[in-house]
Simulated assay, not measured.
Amino acid sequence: MKQLIDFIPLILFFITYKLDPRSLEFAGYAFEFGGIYSATAVLIGSSLVVYGALFIKQRHLEKGQWLTLLACLLFGSLTLLFHSETFLKWKAPVVNWLFAAAFLGSHVIGDKVLIQRMLEHAISLPAQVWKRLNLAWVGFFLFTGTANLVVAFTFHDIWVDFKVFGSLGLTLLFMVAQGIYLSRHMPQEEANATKE
């Protein structure tokens, strides 16, 4: 459920982007609604609401949520300030590459790799398997960051569709592959317990 909440700003961004631009009046002011710039404003506003509500409820945000929120505020604000979607196109690649750097850095900083710190409460695996899985996440984030960059600057007409659905599809495929990989390395008792 928590992961779905993280997608609310992205879904609202996509819906607003797909609307035909129209002028709306509110409190005596005219606003353009629909298209990239109002979608960016919706992304910023909805991210503040969603992550603000999560922070109030949980009294904290995870590091990845802080990174996503700060990147949204930075790249979204630059997009609106300079009226250039180029800044927003760089958001997904930069965030993915920062995640890749964090996962890679955990191989030399700390006594456990990042994926182990995230999942060891649920499953137990040999240290070598954790390291391989962590490197797979590094590769995944490098690939998705690069794919987002290539699509954003090469296939302008579909970059928002790819940002929402392509990235989500890649993530789901990777999660399935990760599940298959983990099932081969889980102790037998644990694998049986997860099937029940």
Rank of each mutant, 00 (worst) to 15 (best):
G28S: 10
S167C: 09
W137Q: 04
I56G: 00
V113P: 01
G35W: 11
G179N: 11
F82H: 12
W97Y: 11
E85T: 04
F55Y: 15
A41Q: 11
W130C: 01
G76A: 12
E190V: 14
F99G: 01
S38W: 09
Y29W: 13
K63W: 15
F103G: 00
G105K: 10
L168K: 06
P126E: 13
K57F: 14
I115N: 00
T68D: 08
F155I: 09
N134G: 00
L48A: 08
A53S: 13
V50G: 04
Y51I: 11
I109H: 14
L125Y: 09
G52C: 07
L133S: 00
G45Y: 12
N134T: 05
L170S: 09
G28N: 08
T194I: 15
R132W: 11
L12R: 04
R117C: 03
A193G: 02
Q128I: 12
F87G: 01
L73F: 11
I44Y: 09
L10S: 03
Y29D: 09
A193C: 07
V164M: 15
D20S: 13
I8Q: 07
K163S: 04
Y29V: 12
E120W: 09
H156A: 12
T194S: 10
L135A: 09
S23R: 12
S183T: 05
F31G: 07
I123A: 01
L133T: 01
P9D: 10
A39R: 05
L114W: 06
T79Q: 07
F87I: 10
W97D: 01
V164P: 03
A100Q: 04
G145P: 02
